[in-house]
């Protein structure tokens, strides 16, 4: 057998790379694995769509009769970016805590004993989860026209990009949770416990104008707010609306009187995501 010969020629000193290129390949491979697994999970994908559809068409339609939008604004148009964010939120967080399964079924160990940094692996996991979660919202995004959101390519791309940022944040949060919680039975409720308030406090489902102080403060310290609000502003920028409706349903975020520009909001979201990823990497101590 010439396998022996090749084996000798293939000895590690010559075979194994190192450095940044190697780390990136590892990240890319972990990402690809998420994609491959995603294809197996069509049922979950469909199931995950049901909840946002109910929010959009059942709750949205029900509330449309009682919410006074001042005319010219369909309440469901207002709700649309929020529901998109909500749907990405849950799929992303669950993609993140799939690391608990990876641990339970042993595959995490295969990843952690490889000669690459843990950061490369965690990053691949976060990017993979964020990508699959974002892909899942495409079906929902396709319904934009039904609720009065124009099919403007630039708008759709902006929404997708923002959804990806939100997805990355939530996947990272899921990873962070699974660094500490090692059983799925515990990780699921813990995730719900964290992301449900995040969702409610992001203004995904109600306008942020005229909130009582305590609620206003909570929404401002919620990193998810800085994903949802830029999405809504992007949608509203493509709508013809009376100024009053705009002020009531897409109010500016202010920090002590300073109006936070959209770009800064996105930066806040990215910075929070970065921090969460870093915390996740730090928590995965090497004895895991």
């Amino acid at each position: 057998m010439n396998a022996i010969q090749t084996l000798r020629d293939a000895r590690p000193d010559r075979v194994v790379a190192g450095g940044l290129g190697h780390e990136l390949r590892a990240t890319a491979m972990v990402w690809r694995r998420e994609m491959i697994r995603f294809r197996h999970d069509r049922t979950r994908m469909v199931a995950m769509l049901l909840q946002p559809l109910l929010f959009l068409f059942v709750m949205g339609t029900g509330l449309a009769g009682v919410v006074d939008t001042g005319g010219g604004l369909d309440f469901r148009t207002f709700l649309f970016p929020g529901v998109l964010a909500m749907s990405v939120l849950f799929s992303a967080a669950f993609a993140g805590i799939s690391l608990v399964w990876d641990r339970e079924f042993g595959f995490l160990r295969e990843m952690l004993v490889a000669p690459v940094s843990k950061s490369a692996i965690i990053l691949g996991k976060c990017l993979g989860g964020a990508t699959t979660a974002t892909l899942q919202t495409l079906v929902l995004l396709a319904l934009a026209g039904v609720v009065g959101v124009p099919y403007d390519p630039l708008l759709l791309l902006t929404l997708l990009a923002l959804l990806f940022v939100g997805a990355l944040m939530l996947t990272a949060l899921g990873v962070l949770i699974s660094a500490r919680i090692k059983q799925m039975q515990a990780a699921m409720p813990a995730t719900q416990l964290i992301i449900t308030p995040m969702m409610f406090l992001s203004g995904a489902l109600f306008p942020m104008a005229g909130l009582p102080d305590w609620l206003a403060v909570l929404t401002k310290i919620n990193p998810l707010t800085y994903v949802v609000q830029p999405m809504r502003s992007a949608v509203f920028a493509h709508l013809e609306l009376p100024p009053a409706a705009r002020a009531a349903f897409d109010p500016a975020i202010t920090w002590g009187g300073w109006v936070v520009p959209g770009g800064v909001q996105v930066l806040v979201a990215l910075a929070c995501t970065g921090l969460i990823v870093a915390a996740g990497v730090a928590l995965f101590n090497r004895t895991d």
């Binding site: 194994v16 790379a17 590892a26 000669p115 690459v116």
Partner: peptide
């Protein structure tokens, strides 16, 4: 393949 990529094999 996953393994080979993580080990940086050409």
């Amino acid at each position: 393949r996953f393994h080979g990529e993580l080990y940086g094999m050409p």
